[in-house]
Simulated scan of single mutants.
Amino acid sequence: MPNPSGANPSQDAYESLLDLLTRLGIIPTHARVDWATEEESAPILIGRLGVADVLRLNRALRAALDLRNPPGVPAHRPVTGEAVLDLATDGIGEVVGYLLRPLEPGRPWTADPDNIRRPERDRLIRARLARLTHLPVGLVPAPPTGLVRD
């Protein structure tokens, strides 16, 4: 059903979505607006997407929700021994094979690779000090500012 005001929100939304998908390198092969509907705004069909496109879209949506790196930045894949922050548990652990070994007392755990990132420097220093002093992270004072260079 045509919009009496002359504006076409379905077409505008469709073009905007195609633009964003194209910026992500996703080219939907069968995308279209379903003008045959009786609804006030026509549904937008994006067609079939391959697994790589869905994963790319997933990363972009997570980034928009501030859960991951910005689009276009490859996901961080840590190496054995590297300290990472698990966003699901808010815990910092060192990578040991497929597990994270906590820097403070606790049991190793598995983490979703899409939910880890590098911890902030101050938080990492406090976690490492907690391991050395056997104190909980919350009781370790923040490191003085200006002593560590980037």
Rank of each mutant, 00 (worst) to 15 (best):
M1F: 14
P2N: 07
N3Q: 06
P4E: 07
S5D: 09
P9F: 00
P9H: 02
Q11K: 09
D12C: 02
D12T: 08
A13D: 03
A13T: 14
E15H: 08
S16W: 08
D19T: 14
D19E: 14
D19P: 01
L20D: 14
L20R: 14
L20K: 11
L20E: 15
L20V: 12
L21R: 10
L21V: 12
T22I: 03
T22D: 13
T22R: 15
R23E: 05
L24N: 07
L24C: 12
P28F: 13
H30R: 15
A31N: 09
A31V: 12
A31W: 05
R32Q: 13
R32V: 05
W35A: 12
W35Q: 13
W35I: 13
E39A: 13
E39Q: 11
E40D: 09
S41T: 14
S41M: 11
A42F: 03
P43G: 03
I44A: 06
I44M: 10
I46R: 06
I46N: 05
D53H: 04
D53I: 07
L55F: 13
R56V: 08
L57I: 03
L57A: 14
N58I: 08
N58W: 13
L61N: 07
A63W: 01
A64I: 05
D66Y: 11
D66S: 12
L67A: 07
N69F: 09
N69H: 09
P70D: 12
G72V: 06
G72D: 05
G72C: 06
P74N: 04
A75E: 14
H76E: 10
R77A: 07
P78N: 07
A83T: 06
A83L: 03
A83E: 05
A83Q: 05
A83F: 05
L87A: 12
T89A: 00
T89L: 00
G93N: 01
G93S: 03
G93L: 01
E94I: 03
V96L: 15
V96Y: 06
V96K: 11
G97F: 03
Y98M: 09
L100M: 08
R101L: 00
E104S: 15
G106M: 04
R107P: 00
W109H: 03
T110N: 05
T110A: 14
D112G: 08
P113L: 06
P113W: 04
P113Q: 08
N115E: 15
R117M: 11
R117D: 02
P119M: 00
P119S: 01
P119V: 00
E120T: 03
E120C: 06
R121A: 08
R121D: 10
R121K: 06
R121Y: 08
D122F: 06
L124K: 00
L124D: 00
A130K: 06
A130S: 15
A130D: 05
L132T: 11
T133H: 10
G138E: 14
G138P: 04
L139N: 13
L139A: 15
V140T: 09
P144A: 15
P144T: 11
P144V: 10
T145K: 15
L147C: 00
V148S: 06
R149Y: 07
